[in-house]
Design a protein around this nucleic acid. Structure first.
Lengths: 186, 186
DNA sequence: ACCTGAACACCGTTCAAGT
DNA sequence: ACCTGAACACCGTTCAAGT
């Protein structure tokens, strides 16, 4: 009757509606019409459940059409990140405090990789640039959705446009002057 | 016997030693040799306690000597942020999900403001640049301390040097070409 | 003024038992 | 194979009572 996918989906919904602290084994079980103990047949424990919830968020993250230019694809991903954060304000912040070595994050990372390669970055520099780029976008989206700066929607949008310009400049420079920003790359 | 400062200090220590989830009214009270209920004489509730803990972290954040150059001051603050994150890995991530309208964050923000003004940014652009800069630094420090990329210390340090270069370039451009990065500023 | 006992409605988790 | 009852060690919080 109950399977892991339903448990994870219900947990994500609960987090979206009432915040991360409302994701309780008791509440999830109740919503599924079952006792809390029965969840242990499908998940290891609560920590593992949250891992699966983050993975579900990443799995539904939309990726841009590969026929778009590298710039358009990165811009798309940036917008998609902010929309994902708005859709899942309770869960999205977990992205910054958990390992990025998971299948779901690998999938998104590949999309950023390909865009940066098309932009002209060296294979060596792409790794570093991807980590920086995602950290900035995710950090911005978390701040926005958590109301960190207490600004109006318009102000936040203007901040984001500013961020986009800075990131575009960074990528352009990295592409045109290889090794200038970072030399001994991994 | 027990006052708010002691409660907050004990909570921060507990978070540093055993993680944020170990900060429990029961555990804090026990460490102070008192019952959990007695804490309510000094704090409003647990959420307010966490606010105070974050504020304590900000209060101890070291600020650079004003005789240093703007570049040296920003570099100092960046290093201090990473050290603060390493000292308080459980609490530091809360900085990105809480309002920056608090006395403690205002104090640090002023230091960044003054450095950006000295760098040559316009008064209008400094607000936006400060939000971007702190978001990036805090986002990086959280990623580092949470082991998000699972890298070695050396790799992380190289990433940080790369970030520093990008941010320096951004500030330099903003100073030399006013309005070029962001026009209609608040 | 400050702390506590008792009580309440919750948590996560284990395990033997039920179907 | 899947779910549950009972039990345990915890949570945050309120409030009347103690000193």
């Amino acid at each position: 009757m109950i399977d892991r996918a339903a448990i994870v989906r219900t947990s994500l919904e609960l987090a979206d509606e009432k915040g991360l602290s409302a994701v309780t084994l008791t509440a999830v079980a109740q919503r599924l019409g079952v006792t809390p103990m029965s969840l242990y047949g499908h998940i290891e424990n609560k920590a593992a459940l949250l891992d699966h919830v983050v993975e579900a968020l990443l799995a539904e993250f939309p990726l841009p059409d590969l026929e778009l230019s590298w710039y358009e694809r990165l811009a798309w991903i940036g917008r998609a990140a902010r929309e994902s954060a708005r859709r899942h304000p309770g869960v999205f912040p977990l992205l910054l405090t958990r390992t990025a070595a998971t299948p779901g994050s690998h999938r998104v990372r590949q999309a950023v990789f390909s865009a940066l390669l098309d932009a002209g970055l060296s294979v060596a520099e792409v790794n570093r640039a991807e980590r920086l780029l995602t950290t900035m976008i995710v950090g911005f989206a978390i701040s926005e959705v958590s109301g960190r700066f207490g600004q109006s929607e318009e102000d936040i949008e203007a901040d984001y446009v500013y961020l986009e310009k800075v990131l575009t400049m960074f990528i352009t420079v990295a592409a045109q002057r290889p090794g200038d920003l970072g030399d001994e790359l991994n």
